[in-house]
Amino acid sequence: MTSQSLTPPVLELRNLVVEFVTRHGTLRALDGISLSIAPGEVLGVVGESGAGKSLTGAAVIGLLEPPGRIASGEVLLAGQRIDHLPMEDLRHIRGKRIGTIFQDPLTSLDPLYRVGEQLIETIRTHLPVSEQEARARAIALLAEVGIPASEKRIDGYPHEFSGGMRQRVVIALALAAEPELIIADEPTTALDVSVQAQIIAVLKKLCRERGTAVMLITHDMGVIAETADRVAVMYAGRVIEIGPVRDVVKSPKHPYAKGLMGSIPALDERPERLLQIEGAMPRLTAIPQGCAFHPRCPHVMPRCHEARPVLEAVGAGQVACFLHEVGQ
């Protein structure tokens, strides 16, 4: 462990477990997630589809869909537990202290209301301002996210905006009440490749200016390498490696992370599959005993079948793998 800073992290997850109670038994979708994000820090979260990245975001803002629920563990926002708060208190946190950006800007906005109406209602839900003040603020926000002629465009309907422009509006909505943390769940996946970089740039710039921390969920290692301060790698509902971006991307420790980073493509393309690693991530119903990665691991050892490795400090980061156990 390195030095313990005085200000608490913006977000801290302690052993978070999320389960789905189905008629086939209880499925454990997140199994003891622990991570933290410092004020102003950008934490990248990577992993294959189904690893539990989105679920982690949903659990933080209290929007797990039934039958999903937090079974154990803690979510702390600026040092205070929020996972057990009543719905109404959580609502005040959503939008106000934690902004969220979803994958698909085309469907995130309500098609029946003007962009401005949606911004103003969000602002006025969280801040004690008048309609005019809110409108002025909305126009300023739109200008900040890079929408030209924002005082005119504010009265447009979502369908009058392109995909990239809509995602800018979504960013403006997420930032509307000056939150401490933004959870961006694959904010560019649904967008045209040509605008992806711009959107990330806007997000990065605005958050840096405001000192907003970001939990950036993405498939895109290129984006992570350029944007994130630290990276968490998820596999089968667990964090298997977390650390400074340079370490994790350049010299990953965990065999899975190695495979994942090895698949970083030339800048613009995204890996559809991890070519370096045989096989696929297990389903929730069939997560192997011991290290969840062992059936695919090139370095698998006998004990990997039985015991589960936990995150342990390795260099500046943490790794959950018996290869990197202390004293190994």
Partner: peptide
């Protein structure tokens, strides 16, 4: 999706 996003924006249940 837009309702999920409305929830994430912290709008009141009524809205």
């Amino acid at each position: 999706d837009h309702i999920k996003f409305a929830r994430a924006r912290g709008l009141t249940t009524r809205a």
